[in-house]
């Protein structure tokens, strides 16, 4: 499954060039600047871009690109691109 372009854009906005070639497997293990501070920025940026609100508990589990993409798909019913539509 390829990474949604809007999700790619959010990651690049938060993590810069480190996130320019995202794959589903990317996580704090592969993106060095994905720390607890940038995780807050990431969550807020995702909420703004996709019009979703994450539960407090699930924020700790959005810890890979694949997990985030799946969560956004479940919110929209299909692809993240539809989450805000």
């Amino acid at each position: 499954m390829s990474v949604d372009p809007r999700l790619q854009a959010v990651f690049e906005a938060v993590f810069g060039r480190e996130a320019s070639q995202l794959s589903e497997q990317d996580s704090p293990a592969t993106i060095e600047s994905w720390d607890s501070l940038n995780h807050v920025y990431l969550v807020l940026a995702l909420e703004a871009e996709f019009g979703v609100q994450f539960d407090a508990e699930e924020i700790a589990n959005l810890i890979s690109v694949g997990a985030i993409q799946r969560r956004l798909e479940s919110a929209s019913g299909s692809s993240p691109a539809r989450a805000a539509s």
Partner: peptide
Amino acid sequence: GKAAGVPASLLFSLLR
């Protein structure tokens, strides 16, 4: 790094 989301999760849970 796998726990990067834990501080935010703790904070937002407390806020609730």
